[in-house]
Simulated scan of single mutants.
Amino acid sequence: MGWMVFLGAACVAAFLFTGVLRGYALKTGMLDVPNARSSHEAPTPRGGGLSVVVVVLLGLPVLFWGAGLEGSALVALGLGGALVAAIGWLDDHIDVAARWRLLVHLLAGAWVVFWAGGAPALPLPGGDWAWGWLGVPILVLFVGWVLNLYNFMDGIDGIAGVETVTVAGVAAGLLWWVGAPGWALMAALLAVAGVGFLVWNWPPAKIFMGDAGSGFIGFTLAAMAVLTWAGTDLTIWVWLILLGVFIVDATLTLFRRLLRGERVYEAHRSHAYQQAARACGRHLPVTVAVGVINLVWLAPWAWAAVVWPEWGVVMVGVAWAPLVGVWVRYQ
């Protein structure tokens, strides 16, 4: 009961603080003004995702002292997340050069991999592969990529919030099931903070997440993927499945833009989810579809990857196949 009260209070706190941030954004003129690459039609306050940042960072010490969350998790998530959120908040106010943001993101990724103790063995059908030093830069790039793709995918009302709630919520259930209550409560904390924000961001959005929130959430999910892989029975395959919608759309779109010689950090509207929203004429059906896909299609495959981790790579391919098809459909 005590933890339910804690999570409920975190949700309410995120909701109330998002309202405060909306008032601040309106007062200071921190608005996203529509342009040719926007998916919204009216100037909208941004920066509301800072509520998730504050609630999660304040909740981490509580989980450390009361739920047995590892000290390495407290340090990796706390300091790394604060650093990512800080550069994102700065970018929400002034344009920070992409190279400096990328440097901070990679440093945060390296910080996480350090506290994870390097790259854990990769479960494969023929046995675990101890990839040693080779896995370290790959995992650092993984954290940096998930962090950035979360920002890329935060382009229509509610989509990033729904992804946060469903992915973290399912992960919380799986972590509880495998006997990792501290990590389960960490994932649940992120999920309920996402709910508090999502009330304001639900289509039509009254406030946007902003770089501070999207970067922090992307970092936290990627960091949890690395750290729980190192310390629990949730391998990287589980997280790749759960994050499939965002990973597939963002990665394929990035490669297509690279092949066309386009500037990958330049804002655009060519993601599959953005094209689907234009085809529907509104954001809500696409946002809801993402939540349904996560819960109905990806969650069962993620559970299967927990039960049979050596076959996780196969399950990732099966789980992602329809997502690739949807991406092709909207290109």
Rank of each mutant, 00 (worst) to 15 (best):
W3Q: 04
A97Y: 10
S39Y: 11
L258Q: 15
D91K: 02
T166V: 15
S270L: 06
V226H: 04
H268F: 11
D233E: 08
M209H: 04
T18F: 13
A160P: 08
A180E: 13
W308F: 02
E41A: 13
L147M: 05
A121K: 08
A14H: 10
V53R: 01
A108Y: 07
R282W: 09
N294Q: 02
L50Q: 11
V318P: 11
D32P: 07
F246Q: 06
G132Y: 12
L16F: 15
D157K: 15
A25Y: 11
W311S: 03
D32F: 04
P203V: 12
E70W: 09
L106Q: 03
G196P: 11
G47N: 11
V286A: 12
G8W: 09
A191C: 08
A321K: 00
A119C: 15
G155Y: 02
W177G: 00
F219S: 03
V328Q: 08
D157R: 14
A305Y: 00
A98C: 08
V54M: 06
H105G: 13
S39A: 13
L252V: 15
G135E: 11
A250M: 03
A36W: 05
L190A: 10
N35I: 03
G281S: 13
I138K: 01
V248D: 12
W202R: 05
T220Q: 10
G8P: 14
A279G: 11
A289H: 06
A168I: 11
F15D: 14
F219N: 04
G135F: 02
P45H: 09
Q274W: 11
G281K: 13
T166H: 08
V318M: 01
T44C: 13
I138F: 09
F197H: 06
I236S: 08
W297R: 01
A319Q: 01
L7W: 06
S214L: 07
H268R: 06
G317E: 09
G2D: 12
E163S: 07
N148E: 14
Q331S: 04
G231P: 04
